[in-house]
Every structure is written in structure tokens, then in C-alpha cells.
């Protein structure tokens, strides 16, 4: 029921997002274009620019939200976020390397490759011992290394243009969103979300502690592999398309938990919906606030509007 509420809000915002923008397309015209009628230009604006961008915002937000929820469930630590497994940093390193070598067209595949390598490295390390403590330590270590190497690459940036390209990319944006990006991020995120949904029940059992969960038939090793794969797919594809986007993975699960309850199994899909909704709203705000000459970056805005809302929820929670 509550999931349906989120879904309805998401669809409403999707409609709003497609109907607004810089190009002067009236509501009636936009609606016509959405149905495949009206002028070619309007159809192109709606179908090839606005819709892919809005859908990508939803997909990437959903991947980040669900990843955060799954990681918080697995580690039983509410401070866990997709960032702690280091995949965003690894994906960012891949992208930054591509930008460093002037290969702008290779940013997405390089970022995906970075995330995949990060995931393999983590699985190799956690093969030594199953359990959330090893997973977190390995993730934090690998992430820190990737961040350091990213810093090194920026340090040796060949020219100011490459450096500014890297910095802007790291602030996160959906301005490169198109159908091609949608066809990359869509299937990968769908696969990642399926992985995370699949382990939802096990995460709930894990709230009783790792040993008790094992006694109830949960295989820690299997859960861990599926979790790492799911997060790597969601975060890797998200970062590859939109750059670094903070806040969503850490705070959206909290917001969903405070508003809808804490069941770790249900939290994953709800956080996916919540993350999608949140990033879509943030992108609408970015587009409304950016004018000619000024471009606001999504990664900055997510934190700017997300954190005050989150703090308000915390205050409300503490007061009650």
C-alpha cells in the first residue's frame, strides 16, 4: 500500500519532469508529443531528451537507494552507504582516467570497468572470511585507494581543461542523459535491483545476528556475493552515467525507514522507489534553477535539499 503511494508520486513527478524544461513546449503540446503526435521537434524533445533524462534520474536514484538499504541491512549499521564498498570511488577512478586521457566517449565503459574491478577485488578479499566486518574494511580500503589514485590523476592532469572536466564530472549531472545511456543503465540497474531484492528476506533474518541467521539457513557467503554484485551493478552504472551523486544511498533509506517502517526486506524496494523519486525531484530542481550560462550540478543539489529534509525528520523523531 505504502509502496503504491511512492509509485504514484513517482509517476506524477515523471509526468511533471517530462512537461517542464528550457524549450518552450506547452503542456498540451507536450502531452500530444508523449502520445506520439504533434510536431517532430516536440516529439524529439520529449522522447529523446526529457524522457530519457527523467527515467535515468529514476533508475540511478533507485539503484543508489536500494544499494544503501541493502548495505545498511547487511552490515546492521545505519551509517553504511554505497560509498563504503568503494565502488563509487572505483567507478569514478575509471571515469577520471578516461577523461585524463581525453577519451570523453569512454567515460561510461571505463567507469563500469572500474566498478567491476572494485567488486572483484572486494570479493577476493572477503573470500578469506565471511561477515560484514571484513566487507566494510575491504570496501573502505579499496575506496580510499581509488580516491587516492584519482587525486594523483588530477594532480597530473595534462591541462586545466581536463582538470575542470574531471571536477565537473565528479559533481554529478544528468546533462549527458540520452537513449544510449538509458539502454546501458536501465538493464544493469534492473539486474542489480533484482539481486538486492533477492536477498531481502535474508537481510531481515540477519537482523538477529550473523550466527543466528546462519542457523536459520542463511548462507552468508552467498548473500555477500549477491549483495556485492547488486551494489556494483547499481552504483557502477549510476556513477558511469551521472558521476558522483551523494546523499541518496545514505539518507534515502533513513527517510523511508522513518516514514514507512524498518523491515529490511521491504526497505529495499521502497528505498528504490524513494531514491528514484528523490533524484527525479532533485533533477527537476536542477533544471528549473539552471539558466543559460549557469549549470547547477545534481550531486550538489541532492545534498543541499536532501540534508535539511533529513535533519527535519531527525528532529521530529527525537521530539516524539
Amino acid at each position: 500500500m505504502r509502496g503504491l503511494l511512492l509509485l504514484a508520486a513517482l509517476l506524477a513527478c515523471l509526468f511533471v519532469s517530462v512537461m517542464i524544461g528550457e524549450a518552450p513546449v506547452k503542456l498540451a503540446e507536450g502531452f500530444q508529443a508523449l502520445l506520439g503526435q504533434g510536431s517532430d521537434l516536440n516529439r524529439q524533445i520529449i522522447w529523446e531528451l526529457r524522457l530519457p533524462r527523467a527515467l535515468l534520474a529514476i533508475i540511478i536514484g533507485a539503484g543508489l537507494g536500494a544499494s544503501g538499504a541493502a548495505l545498511q541491512g547487511y552490515t546492521r549499521n545505519e551509517l553504511a552507504a554505497p560509498g563504503i564498498l568503494g565502488f563509487s570511488a572505483c567507478a569514478a577512478l575509471g571515469a577520471v582516467l578516461a577523461l585524463y586521457f581525453g577519451l570523453s566517449g569512454w567515460v561510461t565503459p571505463a567507469a563500469l570497468l572500474g566498478a567491476a574491478l572494485g567488486a572483484l577485488l572486494i570479493l577476493a578479499m572477503t573470500g578469506l572470511k565471511k561477515g560484514s566486518d571484513v566487507l566494510i574494511l575491504a570496501g573502505v580500503g579499496i575506496g580510499a585507494l581509488a580516491t587516492a589514485v584519482t587525486g594523483l590523476v588530477m594532480n597530473f592532469a595534462p591541462n586545466p581543461w581536463a582538470l575542470s572536466e574531471i571536477i565537473y564530472w565528479m559533481m554529478g549531472s544528468l546533462r549527458h542523459a540520452d537513449m544510449g545511456a538509458l539502454f546501458i543503465a536501465g538493464p544493469l540497474t534492473a539486474l542489480g535491483l533484482s539481486c538486492l531484492w533477492f536477498i531481502g528476506k535474508d537481510l531481515k533474518t540477519l537482523s538477529l545476528g550473523e550466527v543466528t541467521a546462519q542457523s536459520l539457513g542463511v548462507s552468508l557467503g552467498r548473500v555477500q556475493i549477491i549483495l556485492v554484485a547488486g551494489v556494483a551493478l547499481c552504483v557502477g552504472s549510476g556513477v558511469a552515467i551521472a558521476g558522483a551523486i551523494g546523499f541518496v544511498g545514505l539518507f534515502v533509506p533513513h527517510i523511508i525507514r522513518m516514514m514507512f517502517g524498518a523491515d529490511p526486506a521491504k526497505l529495499i524496494l521502497r528505498s528504490a522507489l524513494g531514491g528514484g523519486l528523490f533524484l527525479l525531484l532533485a533533477d527537476i530542481a536542477v533544471r528549473l534553477m539552471s539558466g543559460p550560462g549557469t549549470t547547477l550540478y545534481l550531486g550538489i543539489l541532492t545534498s543541499l535539499i536532501g540534508v535539511p529534509f533529513f535533519l527535519w525528520l531527525v528532529v521530529r523523531e527525537v521530539r516524539s
Binding site: L208, G209, T212, S215, L216, G217
Partner: peptide, 15 residues
């Protein structure tokens, strides 16, 4: 195995 053996841990963990 999980159906045939129940285990009660010393640590009392739950959400």
C-alpha cells in the same frame, strides 16, 4: 539443517 536444529545465541540481537 536449519529445519532440524534451532540455535539460540548468547547475544540477544534483534532490530
Amino acid at each position: 539443517r536449519a529445519k532440524r536444529m534451532a540455535y539460540l545465541a548468547q547475544e540477544r540481537l534483534a532490530q
